[in-house]
């Protein structure tokens, strides 16, 4: 039963790492989602150059691996005189990534609100800004919580990449326990179970939420 004893000993370390993972997720959501909404608005802006630039930004960040962004920020920023912590590096890199991804959801939400709504708003004499902010945007945002929650699960999973630059989240904790005990398998499996339980449970909640939204 050394297996179970070890697990009991490891669990506090892993849970401490989990706290960091969740904190990272929270920070990334706090910056990434507003960024996504901003990018979505820019990508349908009336000025062509703004549209082109924001779409290029989105395409680039959707096209390169998150790990490249992380390494770029971690090793590259100091070269250009920008020194930030490893934690902040992860938050920045993830937020750019999440911003690019979630912008598509926000954009789809905005475009989904029909022309009829826009016309109805302007026929009431609302300014374009009021028509957008009071009529279109509230309807657009009603469609996004489901997909955004799924993104959150993805972000939580990919905070494991912080391992690559030594932020002490759950995967790093598991790996360092492994390197001390040489029993990588047990501790990594334990970490895997924690990830899986959290992800499966939240995916269920998201699915139930989406079903309720549709009903």
């Amino acid at each position: 039963m050394t297996f179970l004893e070890n697990w009991a000993e490891w669990l506090p370390h892993l849970l401490q790492g989990l706290g960091t993972s969740l904190l990272l997720t929270l920070c990334v959501a706090g910056i990434g989602f507003p960024l996504g909404l901003a990018l979505a608005l820019l990508s349908i802006a009336p000025v062509r150059i703004v549209r082109v630039l924001s779409i290029a930004f989105i395409e680039v960040f959707r096209g390169i691996p998150l790990l490249v962004v992380i390494f770029f920020a971690y090793f590259g920023f100091p070269d250009i005189g920008l020194v930030i912590s490893a934690f902040a590096t992860i938050v920045v890199a993830h937020s750019l990534n999440l911003g690019a991804y979630s912008s598509e959801v926000f954009r789809a939400g905005i475009l989904h609100v029909g022309a009829g709504q826009r016309e109805a708003a302007s026929s009431l004499g609302l300014t374009p800004w009021h028509a957008f902010s009071r009529v279109v945007l509230p309807q657009a945002l009603r469609a996004v919580p489901g997909p955004l929650m799924s993104f959150l699960i993805m972000v939580f999973q990919s905070t494991s990449l912080a391992f690559a630059i030594g932020v002490g989240e759950m995967t790093s904790q598991a790996f360092s326990i492994g390197s001390m005990t040489f029993d990588y398998l047990s501790v990594l499996v334990l970490a895997g179970i924690i990830y899986a339980v959290l992800c499966i449970a939240s995916a269920r909640i998201v699915a139930r939420f989406e079903a309720k939204m549709r009903a």
């Binding site: 999973q157 990919s158 494991s160 995967t171 790996f175 990594l188 895997g192 990830y195 899986a196 992800c199």
Partner: peptide, 12 residues
């Protein structure tokens, strides 16, 4: 399989 991050799978 989908609940466990790719990196954790590769490390395992």
């Amino acid at each position: 399989v989908r609940g466990i991050p790719t990196l954790v799978w590769l490390l395992i």
